[in-house]
Nucleic acid binder design. Structure first.
Lengths: 334, 334
DNA sequence: TTGTAGGCGTTATCAG
DNA sequence: CTGATAACGCCTACAA
C-alpha cells in the first residue's frame, strides 16, 4: 500500500505538498497539483483516514447507541443520523444496548476508545453514571428520544407525558373507563415511565380511578405486547381499551386480542406510540402518537456536530408529537 | 488526555511495559502490573484504539453496507453481524445505499479510507466494478443476500430462484392461474430478478402461459407495493393472486387491495418473501418465504473474519429458505 | 507556492 | 521480565 511519501517521491515534491493537494487543493499551483494527482493514480495511492484521525485527533466517526435496530422507530431515527452524518463525511458506528445498562456502558467505553468524535445515545437511564462521566469529562454527546427538558446535556426528544396524556384522553373521550396500559419496563426506559404518568394523570383528570392491575409492564417485544394484553383481557373486569407505550407492543397486543377471539376495534380499542411506517398498513390501521423519528435523528446529529465544533451551549430540543386517529380505536361497547 | 507515556512515567516503568499490561498482562510480573494499573487509574488513562490500529494496521472495525435499514429484514441481518462482531470486540460502521450503485461505490471508498478490516455488502450489482476492484486488490469482503453460487467471492445467501418457485407453486396449487408478481426493480436487486425467474419457470412447468402484463416492477417501498397491486388489479382480466418479492412490498399490496375494497384473502391471495417478524402480526397473517436473516448476518460476519484472519478460501454458503403458509393465501375464487 | 522536520499514541524489535 | 527506540502515515507550524 503506497503512502503519501511514495507519491511525493514519484511526483518529485515533498510530502507536505501531497498532503496539501489532498486537503486544500487550491493552495497548490495547478501544475504541481497535476503532477501529484497523476502520481497518486500511477501508484494507486489510497488515502488513510485512520492516520489522519490519529494526528488531527478527529476520527470523523460518531457512535450511535440505540436499544435495538429491530424496532422500526429506531431504524428510522438511525437513518436520520446516518443521512445527516454521511452528508458531512462522517461515518456512524452503530451499537444495540438491548435495553441493558451494562451493555450501554461497555458500548460507550469501546466507542470512546475508538476515538469517536461524539456519541448519540438513547439511554436506558438518564441519571446513570454513564452520562455523568461523559459530562464530567466534557465528552460531546446528545441524547435521543430524551425525556430531559433542561440542564447541561444536549438532547432531542418529545414530551412523552403529553403523548401519554393525549393517547389516553382519546380513549376517554370515546367513552372508555376500563383503560389498560401495556408499558415497556420502566426500569429500562423512562420514556415509558413518562407516558404512563400522562396516562395516569389523564385518568385522574377525568375522574376515572386508577387501577394498578390495569398496568402491565413487559419487555419491548411483539410477544411482550401479545402476552400483556391477554393478561389485561382476562381480568374479572377486563379492559375495553389499551394504551401501548409503543407501536411495536401495540402490534403484539392486536395479535393477542385476536388470539382471544376478539374483534378489533369493536371489542378492544388500541392506541400505540411512535407511528412507525407500518402502523398505517396493518388492519385495523393503528391509532397512535406520531413521533418525528427521522427528524429527531437528523437534529440529534446536527446538535452533536455543533457541540463538537464550536462550544455551543447544550440545548434541549422538544419536537412536536401528535395523535393520529386511525381505525384501531372506537367507542366503548355498551 | 493522558497517554501511555504519562502512565509509564507515573508508574516508573517504560511505555513498553504499559503496553504489555494492556495487551498481554500475564507477561508482566504481578507487582509491576499492579503499579501500572494503579497509575492508569490515577491519571485517568484512556486507551486509544485509533493509535493502536494505526500501528497494527487493523482498525478492528468492519463496514456493513445494506440497501436500507428501514426494511426489517435488513435490520435483522444487521443485528446478526453486530452481535457476532461485537462479541469479537469488532465494531461495525453501517451505511445505506438506498439501492443506488453510486452510493454503494462511494460508501465502499469511504469505508476503505477509514481502514475497515473488511466489508459485508448487500450489493446492488454483483457484476459491477465495485466488487471487481475489491477482488483485484485482495480486500476482504463477503456478500450478503447473495445470489452468487460459485467463484472467487465469499458470500452467504439463499436460493432465490427456488424461493420464487415455491411461492408461485403454492399459489398454483391453490388453483390460481392469474398470478401477478410485484417485484422490486430488477436493475437494483438481482435477488428480485432471480425470484422472478422462479416464478416464471413455475408458471411454465404448470402450463400457465406467462403474461408480462402481470409483472409490476417498482421501488422497494410500502407505497410501491400498494400502487403496483392496484395496477395488477385494474387489468381487464385482473389477478387473483400476487407474489411480492418481499414482505415489505406485500404489506403495501395488502393495503392497496383493501383500498380497492377487496377482502383478503378471499378476493386476492398474497405471498411475500423474507418472513420479517411482523409478517405474522398483520391481518391476515402473511404467507411468505422464510429467510434466516439473523443467521445470515452472523454467518456473513463469521465468514468475513475467517477471510481477514487466515487466508481461507472463498466460499458460498447457501442457507435454507422455506415456505410458511399462513392466512393471506387461499383457494382461487370460482 | 513549496519544503523541512517534529510529533501524534501505540506497538514491536532487540537487547539487557 | 523489562527497557530503549524505531517505526506507522499523515499533518502542521515554521522557513524558505
Amino acid at each position: 500500500m503506497s503512502t503519501i511519501r511514495d507519491v511525493a517521491k514519484l511526483a518529485g515534491v515533498s510530502t507536505a505538498t501531497v498532503s496539501r493537494v489532498i486537503n486544500s487543493p487550491k493552495t497548490v499551483r495547478e501544475q504541481t497539483r497535476g503532477k501529484v494527482t497523476l502520481a497518486m493514480k500511477t501508484c494507486n495511492y489510497k488515502y488513510n483516514a485512520l492516520a489522519r484521525g490519529f494526528v488531527t485527533k478527529k476520527s470523523n466517526t460518531i457512535g450511535l447507541i440505540i436499544p435495538t435496530i429491530n424496532n422500526p422507530v429506531f431504524a428510522e431515527s438511525t437513518r436520520g443520523v446516518q443521512d445527516y452524518a454521511n452528508h458531512q463525511k462522517i461515518q456512524v458506528i452503530l451499537g444495540n444496548t438491548y435495553y441493558q445498562y451494562d451493555l450501554e456502558e461497555s458500548l460507550v467505553e469501546t466507542l470512546r476508545e475508538k476515538q469517536v468524535d461524539g456519541l448519540i445515545i438513547t439511554t436506558t437511564n438518564p441519571r446513570g453514571a454513564i452520562l455523568k462521566n461523559l459530562l464530567d469529562e466534557g465528552f460531546p454527546f446528545v441524547l435521543l428520544y430524551s425525556t430531559v427538558k433542561k440542564g447541561p446535556v444536549s438532547a432531542v426528544g418529545i414530551d412523552n407525558y403529553q403523548g401519554g396524556y393525549r393517547a389516553t384522553e382519546h380513549l376517554v373521550k370515546l367513552g372508555h373507563d376500563r383503560i389498560g396500559m401495556v408499558a415497556g419496563n420502566f426500569s429500562r426506559s423512562d420514556r415509558s415511565f413518562h407516558r404512563w404518568h400522562g396516562y395516569r394523570q389523564c385518568l385522574k383528570n377525568h375522574g376515572i380511578p386508577y387501577d394498578k392491575d390495569l398496568l402491565a409492564q413487559t419487555d419491548y417485544s411483539l410477544t411482550g405486547g401479545r402476552d400483556s394484553v391477554k393478561k389485561l383481557l382476562s381480568l374479572q373486569n377486563p379492559v375495553t381499551a389499551v394504551f401501548c407505550s409503543n407501536d411495536y407492543l401495540a402490534l403484539g397486543a392486536m395479535k393477542g386480542a385476536r388470539e382471544l377471539g376478539l374483534n378489533l376495534p369493536t371489542d378492544l380499542s388500541i392506541v400505540g406510540f411512535d407511528d412507525i411506517q407500518i402502523a398505517s398498513y396493518v388492519i385495523p390501521e393503528l391509532t397512535t402518537i406520531h413521533q418525528p423519528a427521522y427528524e429527531m435523528g437528523k437534529l440529534g446529529a446536527q446538535l452533536l456536530f455543533q457541540r463538537i465544533g464550536n462550544q455551543s451551549k447544550p440545548e434541549q430540543l422538544m419536537l412536536e408529537s401528535s395523535l393520529i386517529v386511525r381505525e384501531s380505536t372506537t367507542k366503548a361497547p355498551g
